[in-house]
Computed example of a mutant assay.
Amino acid sequence: MILETALLAVKPGEAPAFERAMAEAQPLIAATPGFLGLELRPCFTAPDRYLLLVRWERLEDHTEGFRGSDRYARWKALLHHFYDPLPVVEHYGEPVVSTPAPSV
């Protein structure tokens, strides 16, 4: 499994519109073969900042499958105008250290 991460800096005051646009854009990425899930998390300490986490079966499912699709152009049109600056997207592998939550 590949974990795609992006720290999204949304233009001030645009957070509600951005969240609506992300909800509209989500089916575009979800339709990609190899897509395993998406989370968008708001930052508690920095308003208008979000962490995007996307899980993929393989790196190429994102870099070639989604980004090479017609759906990606629509994704960009819906979302990229909200960012300042454009985010850095990174891809991570399986954990090398992991600690499960204690059992209750």
Results as ranks from 00 to 15, higher is better:
D70Y: 09
V96Y: 06
V89M: 00
P27M: 06
R49V: 05
D48M: 01
D48A: 13
V96P: 00
R58E: 13
R71D: 15
A9E: 15
S103Y: 09
H80C: 04
A17M: 01
E90D: 14
L8V: 08
I29G: 05
L51F: 08
L36F: 00
A25Y: 04
I29T: 04
Y92A: 11
P102Y: 05
V96F: 12
Q26T: 14
E14V: 00
G37C: 11
Y92C: 06
T32P: 13
L78S: 00
R67I: 02
D48I: 01
R67M: 12
E64N: 08
V54A: 14
H62D: 09
W56L: 02
R71K: 12
I29A: 13
R74K: 13
R71I: 07
P27E: 10
P95Q: 06
A31R: 05
I2W: 05
A73K: 12
G93A: 04
P87Q: 07
G34I: 08
H62V: 02
L86V: 03
R71W: 04
T5A: 14
L8D: 00
L36I: 00
P12W: 07
A9P: 02
L86C: 00
T99K: 15
P33M: 11
S103L: 13
Q26M: 07
L36P: 00
F66T: 12
K76V: 15
P12G: 05
V54M: 06
V97Y: 07
A31Q: 05
T32W: 09
T63K: 10
V10F: 01
G68Y: 10
L51V: 11
T45W: 05
S69L: 09
V54C: 11
L7D: 03
G37H: 11
D48T: 05
E90M: 12
W56G: 02
T45L: 09
E14G: 06
L51P: 00
A23H: 14
P87S: 02
R55F: 09
F35E: 03
L8I: 02
R74G: 01
E24R: 15
D48F: 01
D84M: 08
P33S: 01
G13C: 04
L79P: 12
L3E: 04
T99Y: 15
G13L: 03
D84V: 01
K11C: 07
A46I: 11
P85I: 07
T45M: 01
L86R: 04
L40V: 15
G13P: 05
Y50C: 04
P87Y: 00
Y72Q: 13
E4H: 03
A30Q: 14
E4W: 06
L86H: 03
P47E: 15
L3D: 04
V104F: 08
V89I: 15
L79S: 07
A6T: 00
